[in-house]
Write a protein that binds this DNA or RNA. Structure first.
Lengths: 152, 152
DNA sequence: TTCTTGAGTTCCTTGAAGAGACTCCATGAC
DNA sequence: GTCATGGAGTCTCTTCAAGGAACTCAAGAA
């Protein structure tokens, strides 16, 4: 349904939601990220209905976020992140960082992230690609871009 | 419905989805961010049904992401981002950045972001809070955190 | 040959989203 | 005082998506 629900909106947020905005899609991506690549693994881990899992996987493959790779001569496939999909997982890390900060409660975060480059437990931080200073929603002005006035 | 759908999962991504994972919620937040603060404005801009808009706003207020502020003696309210909500908008900026990169097409991005600190058109970049180097999904190991083994 | 296993399909029921009319209530116009 | 207005919702009905569970299909194992 949601396939073209938001996409007409000339808004990159809406367009992104057309790719991973449907229920379960972000969690499917997370699972693939941590190495759960197969249909039955995903179905068992998420407790999602097989029908919906099929639909979501097909959509994510169509969108170029996952690829379906045979791993056996039998009809056996597994799902892998594409480059496009890997960058979506960056988004999931930011989502996790927000959840860690605001929803983790007493127990603390369920998952820690160790950064390869420095070897430390860390978290992701948003910075300006131009000047390197922190960049948050309150630190920017929004201007119409070249793709602003899409008509039709 | 989705209110506690994913939240039991001891996963900050799932918990975050319980807050803004429902259809329309991210777009409602975006609209409030850019200054559309009132019920009828939101309803007209999004084309969402009034019933669903009511449900979403209530949920976002319950979650502490928006606050409902009277702006007149009459029963007139507007919705504002809380600090918690403003940090969610950071997530939307990352979402927009992904959409700009992968879905904008020929026309280019519909919106540009000018960073206050440097005055330049820029985009958000993910860096390690510890060492300041780029931090992407492929650059981290995941380890169980203190809140990992939530039972019940 | 039959069994098993991964990867889906199909069908039926339940529950959420959409559309749009209706309500409530304080104010300003008359 | 009465009426009209406009923002902010509620109510109801229909449509469409999600859940659950049984069924199918292909190929290698016993």
């Amino acid at each position: 349904m949601q396939r073209t629900k938001f996409g007409e909106m000339a808004c990159s947020i809406a367009r992104t939601l057309d790719v991973i905005g449907e229920p379960w899609s972000p969690l499917i991506l997370r699972d693939v990220w941590v190495g759960m690549n197969r249909f039955d693994q995903l179905q068992a881990d998420l407790g999602i209905s097989r029908k919906v899992l099929t639909e979501r996987l097909n959509h994510l493959v169509e969108q170029g976020v996952l690829e379906r790779v045979p791993y056996d001569k039998r009809p056996r496939y597994e799902y892998r992140l594409t480059a496009k999909g890997a960058e979506l997982v960056d988004l999931l890390m930011v989502m996790a960082a927000w959840g860690d900060r605001w929803l983790a409660g007493e127990a603390g975060p369920p998952v820690l992230y160790r950064h390869h480059a420095c070897g430390e437990i860390s978290r992701v931080d948003l910075r300006c690609a131009h000047c390197g200073e922190p960049m948050h929603a309150g630190d920017v002005d929004l201007l119409p871009g070249p793709g602003a006035a899409v008509s039709g």
